[in-house]
């Protein structure tokens, strides 16, 4: 099967710190790939480097066979990659509706259809359409961030720890919605919460100290308590 996103030996420095020390991973279309790892393992930096927000100094990133590691963030986004950052990056003073409006790159039927679909998945956003995003609850902000990335006809969504700081019931809801999106788009999900992510993930990569240390199908990780204990501190 053809890979959608192919990252090879990606290395990233932040100031003098060598954060990513060679990350290699593939994302297959139609799947949910989960990137696991402890705090500080380099998961967020991996997503930021793919997006060009924290450009990699070495290695290559291929998108549908085309090299994108030299492109600017906005060009990478226009190729069809949506980004849901860890802190949700709300435009706190804009309403839900206004945020959706600037998120749309086109206003064609297809985009409107996608907006309808995601608003049905997250009806809260419809309810609070005219509320400033800064005033939404934590879970609603996360929905907003996902909807903002989803509304364009993106082929891949990079989602950074959507479960962070949310109540378990909300996390479950979010995971279900991400699974629903799978039919429409590919997802690269960063998570620490193994129990939630394992229910929807197809494949996994395990990160530690800026490197990929394990990879395989989610089933393999379910069966391998040792890896989970070693890198996530859970059985």
């Amino acid at each position: 099967m053809m890979t959608l996103l192919q990252v090879k030996d990606m290395q990233t420095f932040i100031e003098q710190y060598h954060i990513l020390q060679g990350v290699t991973m593939d994302v297959t279309p139609g799947e949910i790939t989960v990137l696991f790892g402890r705090n500080g393992a380099g998961k967020t930096t991996t997503l930021r480097s793919i997006m060009g927000l924290q450009p990699a100094s070495k290695g290559s990133i291929h998108w549908k066979g085309e090299s994108i590691e030299r492109l600017a963030t906005y060009q990478i986004a226009r190729k069809g990659i949506g980004y849901v950052p860890e802190d949700q990056s709300m435009f706190y003073d804009l309403t839900v509706g206004e945020t959706m409006r600037i998120a749309m790159r086109r206003q064609d039927d297809r985009t409107m259809e996608r907006q309808e679909w995601i608003l049905n998945v997250f009806p809260d956003l419809r309810t609070f359409w005219n509320r400033k995003t800064g005033l939404l609850s934590g879970g609603q902000k996360q929905m907003m961030a996902i909807a903002r990335a989803y509304v364009n006809d993106n082929d891949l969504l990079l989602i950074d720890e959507p479960s962070k700081g949310l109540a378990p019931i909300m996390v479950e809801k979010l995971m279900q919605s991400i699974e629903m999106m799978k039919a429409k788009t590919t997802v690269l999900l960063v998570e620490q919460n193994f129990f939630m992510a394992q229910t929807i993930g197809d494949r996994y990569y395990m990160m530690d100290e800026g490197k990929i240390v394990h990879q395989g199908s989610m089933q393999e990780l379910r069966n391998n308590g040792e890896i989970r204990r070693k890198y996530l501190g859970i059985a």
Binding site: T73, Y74, A77, R78, P85, S89, F91, N152
Partner: peptide, 16 residues
């Protein structure tokens, strides 16, 4: 206005 609040995110939406 979104740019004033968060430049990075605006770019990540594909805006130059």
């Amino acid at each position: 206005r979104a740019g004033v609040m968060n430049k990075e995110m605006v770019q990540a939406l594909g805006i130059h």
